[in-house]
Design a protein around this nucleic acid. Structure first.
Lengths: 202, 202
DNA sequence: TCTTGATTTGACCATCTGGTCAAACTCACG
DNA sequence: CGTGAGTTTGACCAGATGGTCAAATCAAGA
């Protein structure tokens, strides 16, 4: 393990390669289903070499998840209480849908973890996520109080956005098995726009 | 392995115990994350004894999945083209939501499999599932043509129902982390009823 | 170029895991 | 109660897996 100095050129390159490989492998097979050998091979390193950069399989997973959590929550963070309510929400939905399209591995990484009870990120859920959601549902509730959007259960409104957008990444095989050649996102975007316009119009 | 005669009392009891235990373990840890020892212990059998009833870990998983696929698809199968369109769809949604509540392990079993690319049930998706969905989307399209429900992309309408209802089972930890003590399904049912009434009203 | 710290690796280890097998035990039934 | 089929188990195996370590190699600054 290198000293705690500034990372060298090689360290930067290899750490990045490892995290990229780990994202591939963990998102496709889950934590338990992924092997260190697999990640090392995909990163173009030997196993001992990989373990020179991260002390354990778990450490790689943790580094990956905590690094991505911010990326993952950014769209919700951006929801602006001073913007136009309907447009803000629709824009949030579009960003989430775009992330499902452009970052499906990240989506499945979290899905894998959550489906199995989130044993390695439970704390993040109860703390960071919970407080962010509480903050934003307060905004939603204000908008409802002002009659700017329809009155709905704010938590379930958020859940619906998450589940609908992430479905296309998390269950991509199923979506593709049913749609065949048709591009999932081409239909998804207008469907969701219609859905939330109808739902949120007071 | 016993002969292919009618199963004995002990065979029935043990096979059932194994499948029940396997449902617990596979749904909580995924195929790769589950161990035969774990399933055996949970079923109250020794590992060799378990492997006397099923030839391999994979065989248990297959038996479990194929046995549950019918249960899982039954609500969609029941969608009746001769019923009242809106009520039929709302009733389908309620049954799906109820399954999420009463059979969360089954939901997570499929979710685990799907998130990882459904390596063991790909065929079922492209065959059974695809044809059932095609059949039912035809019904939905007819209803739309007749102006009885709003015109929407029928596949995405189905996806939305799946994702919204199953979200509460598959990502239960997350839902609970955010809702706290509040019962998820108490809010989910009316939320979804409102959503789909607004969405489907022409 | 030399030196020193950073990087890489082959060999190795303990444990876990799916699966096998022969021997022992139990049960139902004539 | 004897017997043969059905059931259970301890001991075992091979391969996979996470991780270690000392030795070898490499890279960059003095």
């Amino acid at each position: 393990m290198p000293k705690d100095r500034a990372p060298t050129r090689i360290q930067k390159k290899n750490r990045a390669a490892i995290l990229e490989a780990a994202l591939n492998v963990f998102s496709a097979h889950g934590f338990r289903g992924a092997t260190v050998d697999q990640i090392a091979a995909e990163a173009g390193l030997s196993k001992p070499n990989l373990l020179y950069y991260f002390p354990s399989k778990e450490a790689i997973h943790t580094a990956l998840l905590s690094g991505l959590l911010n990326v993952w929550l950014a769209p919700l963070h951006d929801l602006d209480e001073n913007g136009d309510p309907l447009e803000e929400i629709l824009s949030y939905i579009n960003r989430k849908l775009q992330m499902s399209q452009e970052l499906p591995r990240e989506s499945r990484l979290f899905a894998n973890e959550l489906v199995q009870g989130a044993p390695r990120i439970r704390d993040n859920l109860s703390n960071d996520l919970k407080s962010l959601v509480d903050q934003k549902t307060a905004v939603l509730t204000t908008w409802m109080d002002q009659g700017k959007i329809a009155r709905l259960h704010p938590y379930h409104l958020i859940f619906s956005i998450w589940s609908l957008t992430q479905h296309y990444a998390d269950f991509e095989v199923q979506v593709r098995a049913i749609l065949g050649e048709e591009d999932p996102f081409e239909g998804a975007a207008p469907f969701m726009e219609t859905l939330y316009r109808k739902l949120l119009t007071p």
